[in-house]
Simulated scan of single mutants.
Amino acid sequence: MKRNLSIVFAIIAWFAVIVQFYLMMENRIASIPETIIRFFSFFTILTNTLVAIYFTSQSQKENPASFFGKGGRLTAITIYILVVGLIYQLVLRQIWEPTGMQKIVDELLHSVTPVITLIYWFLYEKKKLINWSQIPYWLIYPAIYLLYILIRGHVSGFYPYPFVNVTEIGYQQTLINSLGVLILFVLLSSGMILIKRIF
């Protein structure tokens, strides 16, 4: 059951990422190298790719000592993709209206993949693998990502999300918004540890 779910979920995640890449290249407004860099500058894309790699690794017949099998890795990935979904639903959905295939892919990236990852986490994460001391480590990935987009945005002028667009809202508001996202990460992390303590 677990392996079959991993295969299906991996297919869904890879499909969404690959089709999104195709659509972005088809509708690009910058050079191909710049478009590729921009594509992988979205937390949504990086995290959905991480989810796809995770499910692919779990679909292998023998994988007890894999990188993703270590304590807390599934919980961390689930937190990341849930943040993708929540920020899209709460902040970004109302400012953009995709149509056609873009709408389908959009829902896969921001709604379907977060939900299926949460289901998988609920079914297969073991409470003995997660603890409070892991939360600071789970924050390293989003912290590095924020640093990257701020540095690259300063150099290139491209910011992937409006709430971190320093050019339009300034550094102060960007840092306030980033703090809000950090709080969301911590709250989700704490909530998931508590859930696993109960169930």
Rank of each mutant, 00 (worst) to 15 (best):
F158P: 09
F163Y: 09
S133H: 13
P114S: 02
V112W: 02
R93H: 09
K126D: 06
N177V: 01
S59H: 08
T117G: 02
L50G: 08
V164L: 07
F43K: 01
P162D: 05
A143V: 13
L5P: 03
Y124W: 05
I77W: 01
T113F: 07
F199L: 15
V91W: 04
Y161V: 11
E168Y: 06
F9R: 00
V115R: 07
L139A: 07
F163G: 05
P114W: 02
E125M: 00
P162E: 09
I151Y: 11
A52G: 04
A76G: 02
K126I: 01
V155A: 15
L74K: 02
V19I: 15
I53T: 13
S31I: 12
L23E: 13
P114H: 04
L23H: 02
I195E: 13
Y22H: 12
Q172G: 08
Y171P: 05
Y22V: 15
V51I: 15
I95F: 09
K2E: 10
F40Y: 14
G170H: 01
T49K: 13
L23S: 03
W132G: 08
T49R: 13
L108S: 03
T44N: 10
L146N: 13
I87Y: 03
S31R: 09
G100V: 00
I119C: 04
A30H: 13
V186H: 08
V19H: 00
A10D: 07
N63I: 01
R73T: 09
P162R: 06
D106Y: 03
S66A: 13
A10Y: 04
L147E: 12
E26I: 12
R28W: 10
G191Y: 10
F42C: 08
Y88F: 06
I12F: 11
I169R: 02
Q172I: 11
Q173V: 03
S66R: 06
M25N: 10
